[in-house]
Design a binder for these strands. Structure first.
Length: 880
DNA sequence: GAATTCGCTCGCCTTT
DNA sequence: AAAGGCGAGCGAA
């Protein structure tokens, strides 16, 4: 066993760097591939490898992979793992371990402002580096400025920078890019390609990129944030924004500081600072590496990633940030030891893969609920993979495990998806999951005996976390076309049996009289006053329902009883469901522990208040309103609050931060098919030669104009009415409509919306005590009859799809023809076989027609036209 | 060099 | 001009 800091290719050999810094040759830099015995292979040299494989060693470059694989395939030989590069092969096969004491350095470059055309073209060889700053794991911190702006001076700077690359195992830069990117793509980042381009332009050959381990700290942040954070606000990925989101100081405002000294900063300020205020440049540059350092202290994401690298034996290079790479490292190593080899992963593959049907999501029932207990299957997908022994390697025509296909609601069909080997032949992926989870249990046990906060404890915590994250990513990777673990049947088996399980749970709960109010993928929430009942139900599901269900698919009862567990860990004291995947509540039980009555533990999911795309003022108003609703305020109180907020919004000095929108740019601007506001603004920024921080653009709207850049902020131009109606009020209106569905919550301020209907609150919707203003519905109402066509059952899954089919304009027309009290009868037609009716008394304002005409919304002269196209989808008929 | 599917909202853009 | 389709972004799981 050798513990290493690095492993790299040096000409024809592989060199490992031991923990003490000694360099050791560990093998030849050659490709290895595996194949089953075949006459065509007799002509070449091979070894026999465990598992009945032949191991072939050859030299070829990555660019030749397609040709090599194609050549052998045409002779009937399928090459396995031929894409695995020599370094990765060695990491998988040899008895190596990644050191837990890797050193690292954060760096940050500053460049003089290049000519605008060089900037736009990302022509980094024309970027002149004027300084760099560093901060390192061994406590060094500094900033180097070029002596003067000559090539000779910059060469000196580059050599000092190269010294940093040589002295530390890992080098990190924010938006730094990768070891090999050329800077032409946006994803290639900035610092590393600039250094590469400048070294080339100035003929400095001091950095061997093959042995560098570079990490883009922004990518690292993004990855770990998504993997480890449960919900919560996503910040912009700019260094300054991320620093602030983590409670740290933002960036030094260089331009402002220059102006204070009477220096005209120009577009960015770097050049001016270098020329006239080098101390400020130093402070600015150091400020960035300090922010990088502090972000790591706060989040520990690098430490977590290094733990993952140790866990799966992977070098912390740029590519290690992809889940594919992590799974590869783990599985290739396991495969080498157990005699299994995986298909070659081709760089270009033909993606004819079909989409797999995913989880069941029950349509959210808007309303206010009390005592909503949630049952949740622990690690549903990893557990299913283990219980059903899934993987492309366990597929057998005569396998004893036969996952059943279920429909979109989780009801079983007759079809078997595929057959898989029984547990006497455990698959590679289930084994890997088992190893990850048992390691995790080991780490957790060891951790118990240590004090929180000690280095050993924290490291075990990270290792435990790394196990969990790795296990959770397997499902997604098996559904990634082009992944060597891809298998559509496996993916379908996971989701299909997941649907079966949650559907069976739903049926059990409903058969006991419980009303399910939310249900998404692996959990179900139902109203339940008895605090003991959820645990009893969980026990029943675990000991009977799961074993029964999985036995029908060939899974031994003791296996499903051991691997599939539903838990009751959360109950909401109060819960407001606004829509599917959007709700808020206070817990009475959280993580299995009761929450004292006087404590508010808020959970807020999916609503605008947690969406970064919503403007701050709208998020704040929605959150505050939700809290008031959950605390039990009356509708009158909340309405009064909202009216005060509206008055405040209309009068106060609004700040840019209240109204600014942030939207991510996800691809190159010319690839956009529709010119959305954020794309228009991004184009403006680019035309000025500016980057948008963290790929998010910030913009605001002036009265009647295109979206504007933040530089052009001018309160006088803000159309408050438009902002309130379009962006601030609607999210809150939806919350209130969920809480008090019988009331009118339109508080828009623009040209008056005219309400045609006065819907009576539905009796079946539990809501907070309220004093809804109700207009009386007359004794003998007319019937307004509207027929609506829905998409066929198979295609119908979401509210969006259904809503899109409802021709509101038709309803409006019919209603206008029938003023006064009426019953609105909606007939939902599904194909031509099935219909269902919904009736609700309405009051069509007798003056609606006149009001609409007065408001200019409809034209007085235009007569109502009967729709005669005969299709059920749009024919409206009215009878009195 | 690329973990998945489901669902919602907003705005652009094409069709009628 | 209105309606509907759909692109784009973002969240839940």
């Amino acid at each position: 066993m050798m513990t290493i800091r690095n492993l790299y290719r040096d000409g024809d050999v592989l060199v490992a760097v031991r923990e003490d810094g000694q360099r050791v040759e560990v093998g030849e830099a050659v490709r290895t591939f595996y194949a089953r015995p075949h006459p065509a292979l007799d002509a070449i040299e091979y070894d026999e490898a465990p598992g009945g494989w032949l191991r072939v060693v050859q030299r070829f470059r990555s660019g030749q992979l397609g040709e090599v694989v194609g050549r052998w395939r045409s002779r009937g030989v399928e090459l396995m793992e031929a894409d695995v590069k020599p370094v990765d092969r060695a990491l998988a096969d040899l008895d190596l371990r990644i050191s837990s004491r890797l050193s690292y350095a954060f760096i940050d470059l500053e460049c003089a402002e290049p000519p605008i055309e060089a900037l736009r073209a990302r022509e980094y060889k024309r970027f002149e580096i004027v300084s760099f700053a560093y901060r390192t794991s061994d406590g060094k911190r500094g900033c180097v400025l070029v002596e003067n702006r000559t090539p000779a001076a910059e060469r000196v700077l580059l050599k000092k920078l190269a010294q940093v690359f040589r002295s530390y195992d890992v080098v990190l830069a924010w938006n730094g890019g990768r070891e090999w990117g050329d800077g032409q793509r946006r994803e290639d980042g900035f610092d590393f390609p600039v250094i590469r381009a400048r070294c080339k332009a100035l003929d400095v050959d001091a950095i061997d990129w093959w042995r560098c381990m570079c990490i883009d700290q922004m990518d690292l942040y993004k990855l770990k944030f998504l993997q480890t954070t449960d919900g919560g606000q996503r910040a912009s990925l700019g260094l300054s924004a991320v620093a602030k989101a983590n409670g740290l100081a933002g960036k030094v405002d260089l331009k402002q500081r220059l102006r204070e000294r009477g220096i005209e900063p120009g577009q960015v300020g770097i050049t001016a600072a270098y020329e006239h205020a080098p101390d400020l440049l130093r402070e600015y540059n150091l400020g960035d590496v300090d922010a990088q350092w502090e972000i790591e202290q706060k989040t520990g994401y690098l430490a977590l990633h290094l733990a993952t690298c140790r866990l799966v034996t992977m070098l912390p290079r740029s590519d290690s940030l992809t889940p594919t790479r992590t799974m590869d490292a783990l599985m290739l190593r396991l495969g080498h030891r157990s005699g299994h080899h995986w298909p070659t992963r081709m760089r270009e593959y033909d993606d004819t893969s079909e989409k797999i049907r995913g989880a069941v999501v029950r349509q959210g029932q808007p309303g206010f609920y009390r005592d909503l207990a949630v049952l949740d299957v622990s690690s549903l997908y990893p557990s299913l993979i283990r219980a059903l022994n899934l993987g492309s390697d366990t597929k057998r025509d005569d396998g004893s495990i036969a996952p059943i296909m279920s429909d979109e609601n989780g009801r079983p069909t007759d079809a078997v998806i595929a057959r898989f080997a029984g547990h006497d032949e455990p698959g590679q992926i289930p084994r890997a999951l088992e190893i990850m989870l048992s390691k995790r249990a080991e780490f957790d046990v060891k951790m118990q005996s240590l004090d929180v906060g000690t280095p050993e404890h924290d490291d075990l915590k990270r290792l435990s976390n790394a196990c969990k994250v790795a296990a959770n990513s397997f499902y997604g990777l098996m559904l990634q076309p082009g992944s060597r673990f891809y298998d559509a049947d496996v993916g379908a088996a996971v989701t299909s049996t997941g649907r079966l399980a949650i559907n069976a749970i739903g049926e059990l709960l409903e058969s006991r009289g419980y009303k399910i109010r939310i249900q998404d993928t692996d959990s179900a929430g139902f109203e339940c006053e008895d605090p003991e009942a959820p645990a009893r139900l969980a026990e029943e599901i675990n000991s009977r329902l799961f074993p029964d269900l999985f036995a029908t698919m060939g899974v031994p009862r003791e296996v499903s009883a051991r691997l599939l567990k539903i838990k009751h860990e959360e109950t909401y004291r109060r819960m407001l469901i606004v829509r599917t995947k959007g709700y808020a509540g206070f817990f009475s039980v959280y993580k299995g522990q009761p929450v004292p009555v006087d404590r508010e533990v808020l959970d807020l999911k999916g609503l605008e208040a947690v969406k970064g795309s919503t403007i701050l003022r709208a998020r704040e108003l929605q959150r505050e309103t939700i809290l008031r609703v959950l605390r039990g305020e009356s509708s009158g109180e909340v309405r009064a609050f909202a009216e005060r907020e509206l008055a405040r919004f209309a009068a106060e000095d609004l700040a840019l931060v209240d109204l600014i929108a942030h939207t991510k740019i996800t691809k190159d601007l010319d690839e956009y098919k529709s010119q959305t506001p954020h794309v228009r603004v991004a184009a403006e920024y680019v035309a000025l030669g500016r980057e948008f921080e963290g790929s998010k653009v910030a913009y605001w709207f002036a009265r009647g104009e295109r979206p504007k850049m933040t530089d052009d902020w001018d309160l006088a131009l803000v159309d408050r009415t438009w902002y309130w109606d379009k962006h601030v009020w609607p999210p809150t209106q939806r919350v209130l409509e969920a809480a008090w569905p019988g009331q009118e919550w339109d508080m828009s301020t623009g040209p008056k919306q005219i309400s045609l209907f006065d819907m009576r609150p539905s009796e079946s919707r539990p809501t907070v005590a309220r004093q809804a203003k109700r207009r009386r519905v007359a004794e003998e109402p007319a019937e307004v009859f509207v027929r609506l066509a829905l998409p066929p059952l198979g295609e119908r899954s979401s509210a969006t799809k259904i809503r899109d089919k409802i021709r509101i304009s038709k309803v409006k027309q019919v209603a206008l023809e029938n003023p006064g009290s009426a019953t609105l009868v909606l007939v939902f037609a599904v194909g031509d076989q099935y219909e269902t009716r919904l009736e609700t008394p309405i009051m069509v304002d007798p003056n609606a027609q006149a009001k609409l005409e007065a408001a200019g919304i409809i034209q007085a002269s235009k007569p109502f036209e009967e729709d005669n196209d005969g299709s059920p989808s749009s024919s409206g008929r009215a009878r009195a």
